[in-house]
Design a protein around this nucleic acid. Structure first.
Lengths: 307, 307
DNA sequence: AGTGGCCATAAGAAAATCGGATAGCCAGAT
DNA sequence: ATCTGGCTATCCGATTTTCTTATGGCCACT
């Protein structure tokens, strides 16, 4: 009898389906199937009735589930006991970041975290805010970082991490109508704008800004690839609007120039979100702290940020 | 975290030594070492202080032990739950037999058991009675079968399985002073006798019989190998004394002849021994039943047994 | 100093696990 | 009736993990 078999069985039981259980535990459908049927074969029982719409537990399956849950609970207690007794911070941290963070801030965080907490295993996934919320809610992520304008529910709590400017990004040799506060978007013409697709949460904010401030957009393009967008902007007349920390690498010169939107500026708040019921593990808290610090110093670096 | 790691850790803890734990769990010293140090590395803790005389748990080790035991207990309950719910008999049976049984009776038992209980895994070990007692006492065997004259203690219970004749075995062309009850040992001369070494429990019984009945032994040889003894007896003037069921294969003719000791006969009782606290599992009971049946029919086959 | 018991580590072999692909099955839609 | 989509079981090659054997270091005891 192995703990992982119990975990798999319990997940399949709770999901009522092998395939639904796949993304709960990090596994494949075939792996789940084999493990469960291995239990069944070894003990000569049938745990589930299989059908084409999933599985329903048998009487035996229900009885075994109760015991299996107890075993897993005991195992988790034992594990936590060990972690709390450990002098060094250990564990496995799962973090979800929006793409904004992964271009510049993340590498700095990773370097520090790797040296300061060498024993901690780290999984960082990049996704858009809607996705991250879901993953946090379902407990697959210790926390996520999302823009402040997404909607939360009861199960989640958030903590503000900082405020950033949305910036115009275009190729470096273009002349921009700069003021001391940044660029006046309505004076940039012709404005050929690259935006993320309609599924993206930032998309609507930018559209609102544009209509509210009478910005004339002559052409609009949807790109949902950040690399593609950056490349496109560097090598054409197209421009885009990105958050400041994402543009940090472009401040040192290069094929792109960056200017914060001015009059009015457009700001983003970043929030850390986590589930209400389970507090961050020590390791996750450590990662969050480092992320916060690096974010702070990044926001300071922005030339326009001290206003 | 894996269950086996917990099992290994707990065993090392209870034994106070890696090498002592080796034969408790079926494992090697290096395997144990690796698993324990894997826990220690993963969680950044030290569970044992190593010394050249074994290990002593640290504070952390003691705390973790308490939790680990709970996990294992829960796991065993879950497993037993599943077994009790299974319609077919499953599990793993460990049996210890004395060499007497392994020559003729065992194969018949194995055949029947294999077909009647295909799901049950079976481990049969052959050993001498002293050893078997120890193994049963320490829980590594579900039960053992030993001669009735061994001494039991409180922790063990026994059940009589049957009575057998000790028989003289010699090469087939030898003339023996047979009566209708068997052979009169004191009339066999010259008596060149092969016996097991002094460590063996049967040795003393046979010696007692010899002196009590004025049997003249001209030569004595100690052989602790059953194969060697049988071969020796088949091809020389040397004879030996074996229990009846062990001689079954020689009754159909062959290089050896067999005759029960007569006037007086020398009998052996076979007992099944098991621990008092844990009753036999269903599978073990089934094996014991089949063994009993086969033993009964073997004892009947003996031509001299119906007296 | 020598010896024996004990634990850690290395490396190769063996075994379990994983992941992708495929096949079968059933229900509901066309 | 056929088709389609969703679900599970199974097969197979590749990877990872686990186990074993052998070896070396350490300490206590002689």
């Amino acid at each position: 009898m192995k703990l992982q078999q119990l975990r798999y069985f319990v997940t399949v039981y709770e999901q009522g389906s092998f395939s639904a259980a796949v993304d709960k535990v990090h596994a494949t459908q075939s792996g789940l199937s084999m493990h469960v049927s291995q239990i069944e074969k070894r003990y000569g029982v049938t745990l589930f009735e299989r059908s084409s719409s999933g599985v329903t537990p048998t009487e035996v399956g229900r009885a075994f589930y109760k015991e299996a849950v107890k075993v897993l609970a005991a195992a988790r207690i034992a594990e936590e006991r060990l972690q709390s007794l450990s002098k060094t911070v250990v564990g496995h941290v799962h973090v979800g970041l929006m793409p904004t963070f992964t271009r510049a801030v993340l590498t700095a965080v990773l370097k520090r975290f790797g040296t300061e907490y060498p024993e901690v295993r780290l999984s960082v996934s990049e996704s858009y805010s809607g996705n991250l919320l879901q993953e946090v809610r379902e407990g697959r992520l210790d926390f996520g970082v999302v823009p402040a304008f997404v909607e939360l529910d009861e199960a989640l709590i958030s903590k503000r991490m900082g405020t950033d400017h949305e910036c115009l990004v275009c190729r470096s040799d273009r002349e921009l109508p700069l003021t001391k506060d940044g660029v006046l978007l309505r004076d940039v013409s012709p404005l050929k704008l690259v935006l993320p697709g309609p599924g993206n949460a930032r998309r609507r904010r930018i559209e609102n800004y544009i209509t509210a401030n009478q910005v004339q957009v002559t052409d609009l393009m949807e790109l949902d690839t950040m690399h593609g967008t950056l490349d496109m902007v560097a090598n054409s007349d197209w421009v885009t609007i990105l958050s400041g920390i994402m543009c940090l690498p472009d401040l040192k010169g290069g094929p792109r120039q960056v200017a914060p939107l001015a009059d009015p500026p457009l700001m983003v708040d970043y929030m850390r979100i986590e589930t209400r019921k389970r507090p961050l593990s020590e390791a996750a808290q450590a990662f969050a702290d480092i992320l916060q610090e690096e974010l702070n110093s990044s926001l300071e670096i922005e030339p326009f940020s001290r206003r």
